[in-house]
Design a protein around this nucleic acid. Structure first.
Lengths: 190, 190
DNA sequence: TACCAAAGTGGTAGTGACTAACATTTCTGG
DNA sequence: CCAGAAATGTTAGTCACTACCACTTTGGTA
């Protein structure tokens, strides 16, 4: 059960993030200070830092990593490794777009245009890679097998990231899952 | 011809970078201030910023991007796209190790263990991706062809990055070109 | 040789992200 | 209803990084 305190906490967090992304899109990321975000959300700067570790997390934070890992693990084992991982990523993208397309597009366009955000977004893909490896190999995997899964996951994420960028550049008009399938097809064409 | 001024500039730059990496490895990246690096190199903090845009560039700066792009373009056109890109990356790694293995290993271990550096290293791989696309497609490419090359380059870089991490974890004892070939083989196995 | 423009360097003051420590208010569970 | 926990605010501080100005050194030129 969620207490009043928990609900308030989530509300505050979402309010801060929404105001932050709106301001970043309006005025630019670098031109907006954390203090301004705090004022817009009606809280103090300290409260922003209590909810988000860094200014970048105001844009980057989500919890797709665990879901992605679970989705990969749920794909049928009859698929080849790069199909399992790649198609799980496509599946995730479709779900995410259905749930919150506008927010996703706003965040993604910031993540691509602002260098600091782009860098940390790529690092979070690295975290996704680790999550996938853990989901498929368990906590203490055989090094050789881990290497194989990591390399494949890295290749899949590298390819699908290109599709993400394309989709953001099309302002969400393009069909993201289809773009991702194409990117994977190009990369893994024999 | 290089003037005295040019030589001095390069010397100063290399001295600053060498002291920075030594201090970062000794005391930790976050625990070392730019002022301390400046003092160790016998210059002022201002001078450090004149040579390196950010603290991170003290570790990240190199000029492999252009060389990598040229190497890709030089591979025979008879190879498939992912072979051309992948094998060029392998070739680059072998050359870089032969030229400056210790420095490469020091920088790479920092780039992996320090989150801020890891993020910007991944972003520089994104820059490498762009350089490869330009080298293969020219300055104003056909969008569909660019998408294909980008996706393939992204997949290759994603796979080889895993090999880079493995190599750094082995303290340089492993055979990096061989690891990269394996990673590419795993990823693109049919 | 004398000189001037350009490049390299240093100092100072400032902005803004982020942290630590402490006080205050607001909820939860008994 | 009350004691403790959680959330928030305030203040003072560190450090990366920038803008601006002054000083010194170097390279080509009259």
């Amino acid at each position: 059960m969620t207490s009043l305190r928990d609900r308030r906490r989530i509300e505050t967090r979402q309010a801060i993030q929404a105001h932050a992304i709106r301001l970043f899109l309006d005025r630019g990321y670098d031109a907006t200070t954390v203090t301004e975000v705090a004022e817009a959300a009606g809280v103090s700067a300290m409260t922003v830092y209590r909810h988000f570790a860094t200014k970048e997390d105001l844009v980057l934070y989500d919890d797709y990593d665990q879901v992605t890992a679970a989705t990969v693990a749920a794909r049928p084992e009859t698929e080849s490794l790069h199909q399992r991982i790649g198609l799980a990523l496509v599946e995730m993208a479709a779900t995410a777009i259905a749930a919150e397309k506008a927010m996703l597009l706003a965040r993604l366009s910031l993540m691509i245009s602002v260098p600091a955000l782009r860098a940390h977004h790529l690092d979070s893909q690295y975290a996704t890679q680790s999550a996938i490896v853990t989901a498929l190999c368990g906590p203490s995997p055989d090094p050789a097998e881990e290497f194989r899964v990591r390399a494949t996951a890295g290749a899949c994420l590298g390819a699908t990231h290109v599709a993400l960028v394309r989709w953001a550049e099309s302002d969400g008009h393009a069909d993201l899952p289809e773009l991702m399938r194409q990117a994977l097809g190009f990369a893994f064409a024999t």
